[in-house]
């Protein structure tokens, strides 16, 4: 398995998320989340490869958590869409936090948003989904349970918690890894953001044409 720089993963996920039909600003959030996940040892490439086919071409409004979804109870919730609503403060106020988001695809992707949200509201948070629990404090997240398989659509709970006197430091990495098949999925989505070349664009688009060997 090849390893990738954090910048490569951020950039690939940004393009892939955009390729799935979302705005550039949302795609920036997806890329940043993928970078954080990789740096903190989570399989960002695999998680986004799992997410994108399930939200491909969906409207942003349809992927919002139920609490801010004006149209209906969502079939599935995108963790990036929910994560932005969370960090923006659309899901709750600054008081005691107690949020439940249902039907989340690839729920681990919500973790970087919860870390940022915790810093914004200055609280210690506990994020749980399936059998997973994450303690979030001081800009870091520590997994409290061993990794088990995620359910297809998870309910994610984010609640206020209390400081832990000796929180272990999470193991961070300067590289990210991904399954080759996952990478292929992301590259297929990213590919939708590229413009095929024509003879005219080959010459004009980059502005060549003058002697370049002198």
């Amino acid at each position: 398995m090849l390893d990738y720089s954090i910048g490569e993963i951020d950039s690939l996920v940004l393009k892939a998320y955009r390729g799935a039909g979302f705005s550039w600003g949302m795609a920036q959030e997806a890329g940043a989340a993928a970078g954080w996940l990789s740096e903190n040892g989570y399989p960002a490439i695999d998680q986004f490869a799992r997410l994108l086919p399930q939200i491909d071409g969906c409207a942003h409004a349809d992927l919002l958590p139920a609490v801010v979804n004006s149209s209906r109870v969502p079939e599935r919730v995108c963790p990036v869409v929910a994560g932005c609503a969370l960090t923006d403060g659309a899901l709750c106020g600054d008081g005691v936090i107690s949020i439940a988001i249902e039907s989340v695809v690839s729920p681990i992707i919500l973790l970087p948003f919860a870390v940022r949200f915790a810093a914004t509201v200055g609280q210690v948070l506990l994020l749980t989904h399936d059998a997973q629990r994450y303690h979030i404090e001081s800009g870091r997240a520590v997994a409290l349970a061993d990794h088990t398989a995620d359910s297809k659509l998870a309910t994610v709970q984010i609640v206020s918690s209390t400081r832990q006197p000796s929180m272990p430091l999470p193991v961070t990495s300067t590289r990210g890894v991904g399954d080759p098949q996952s990478l292929e999925v992301l590259e297929r989505f990213a590919h939708r953001t590229y413009v095929p070349a024509s003879d005219a664009s080959r010459l004009a688009g980059a502005g060549a044409g003058l002697l370049d060997n002198d």
Partner: peptide, 18 residues
């Protein structure tokens, strides 16, 4: 309106709001 709410409706503006 807080931007949190504005951006739920207009995610296309997120990159420039930033």
């Amino acid at each position: 309106t807080p931007l949190a709410e504005f951006l739920l409706r207009y995610p296309q503006h997120r990159h420039v709001v930033r």
